[in-house]
């Protein structure tokens, strides 16, 4: 039987995963309801600035907080020669949280009954969905380095900048246009698409 102390750590890990799950459900549901006119999955979940800017930044901050929590005890963990073990556990937890987040974030849309890839090709659409998931996985792994880093704050800011930079620069200027010309501002202006 687990003691109260043992439950203490499991409880905080459980609640962190629950917060991530609730965040994904809330954002995906919000996106579905507020995007009544245009149900394409890429337009709803990838192109939308708000769903990347706020919830995915919150996800990164939550993972960083989790790592910094253990970092505070790193000397006592190091004395026991278990720094590698703790970092491995943090890595597993971060990867699990990103997977739970995107599983629910994408999953709710897939199960909503909407036609999924409306504006562009299925292949490039899937690639866009996977690329964002993999980007967040890489950032989740990068965040674990904050456990040993001399400057965890800089690492935290860097992960946020990479996430936003990828969205506003690489996705907006290249990947979304590859998926559909409808997401090209010039094409939209020429064809008087203002929606």
């Amino acid at each position: 039987m687990k003691s109260r102390a043992e439950y203490g750590l499991w409880r905080s890990t459980f609640w962190q995963v629950m917060i991530v799950a609730l965040l994904a459900i809330a954002v995906s549901t919000w996106d579905l309801f507020t995007n009544v006119e245009h149900k394409d999955i890429i337009a709803t979940l990838i192109r939308s600035h708000l769903s990347v800017l706020i919830p995915q930044s919150i996800l990164l901050v939550l993972m960083m907080w989790q790592v910094l929590r253990y970092r505070a005890a790193s000397v006592l963990i190091g004395i026991r020669h278990q720094s590698e073990l703790v970092q491995k556990r943090l890595l597993i937890q971060n990867v699990a949280e990103v997977t739970v987040y995107f599983g629910l974030y994408y999953g709710i849309f897939f199960l909503s009954g909407n036609k999924i890839f409306v504006d562009g090709s299925v292949e490039i659409g899937l690639l866009l969905l996977l690329l964002r998931y993999f980007l967040m996985l890489v950032l989740a792994i990068l965040i674990v380095f904050a456990y040993r880093s001399q400057h965890p704050g800089i690492l935290g800011v860097l992960t946020l900048l990479i996430s936003l930079g990828y969205h506003y620069w690489i996705e907006a200027n290249y990947l979304l246009i590859m998926y559909s010309p409808l997401y090209d501002p010039l094409y939209r202006a020429i064809h008087h698409i203002y929606q």
């Binding site: 003691s3 109260r4 102390a5 043992e6 203490g8 905080s12 505070a72 000397v75 026991r80 278990q82």
Partner: peptide, 24 residues
């Protein structure tokens, strides 16, 4: 015990001690 000991700040003393001891 080296310098100011750092712990899992938002956990109880018992949870901290159990966590540390159970590492090994």
């Amino acid at each position: 015990l080296i310098e100011n000991p750092g712990f899992l700040e938002y956990e109880t003393a018992m949870t901290n001690l159990k966590f540390l001891a159970n590492l090994n």
